[in-house]
Amino acid sequence: MSLFDWFANRPKVAPLSQEQQQREIADGLWTKCLACGALTYTKDLHLNNKVCPECGYHHPVKSHERLKQLLDADTWQPRNEHLTACDPLHFVDRKPYSERLREMQHKTGLNDAIQTGFGKIDTHPVALGVMDFNFMGGSMGSVVGEKITRLVEEATQARLPVILICASGGARMQEGMLSLMQMAKTAAALGRHRQANLLYISILTHPTTGGVTASFAMLGDLILAEPKALIGFAGRRVIEQTLREKLPDNFQTAEYLLQHGFVDMIVPRTQLKHTLAQLLRLHTPTSPPVGHRYVTPGFLLS
């Protein structure tokens, strides 16, 4: 029996009084599903990769939880952890950017919106980047762009596959055009990785929008998405306001993108490690290639 089935079959209602329930939710012992309202023992929810055993809702996860979910134990070797943003525009909106950064760093324990490094998935070595939506909405500024670029360059050198887990509202406005240019920079690095016939898998999680969608998120050789994740370029509100168009029900969901040919498969988080391992295995030649190499079709002219 899979863990998932086991969750599905166990007693569903928490045998608690209303009052005790409220107290234990507050204590964090129980977690109420944001989608169906079902109560799950928090420990069990974490064991199920924060997917509601009742309705399959994918609760938001932090980057370090992702790492734990995906990588073989004790294989994570982080890179460039100390890179930090430095407010080159001296940007002030209702609050100075430098202050926002400090607050975010304090709140999340991260220096910026992505963790990058090397690790193993079911014994397969990979270069892995995991974005963290909790850090300024996973927005991409210079640090996110630089860390991805360095990771991809190192992976190209080491001839390793790259996996990027996307979760982002887009480019970081507080770094202005420096943020926009990270789209080109990361795309360029992935282009070299691609020209070396190395595998890049991008994983789109809720939400993946704006400048991240229009760069590395959509450049995967293989693109996976989590169920019901919001994925798109333009914001829903912008489309509604500027064009007064009625939006389809499942517009900009993972399922919508699958239907229109922009993702390869939708993979529930509980299956993600398994699926990645399978894909990596399928890309591991059983015997060394004999003098034959494919020409990467994307760079059909180089």
Binding site: A187, M218, G232
Partner: peptide, 14 residues
């Protein structure tokens, strides 16, 4: 969006 605005731009960048 249906035709992949993000994908089209991303591919050009690369």
């Amino acid at each position: 969006e249906r035709l992949g605005q993000g994908e089209a731009i991303a591919v050009n960048l690369q």
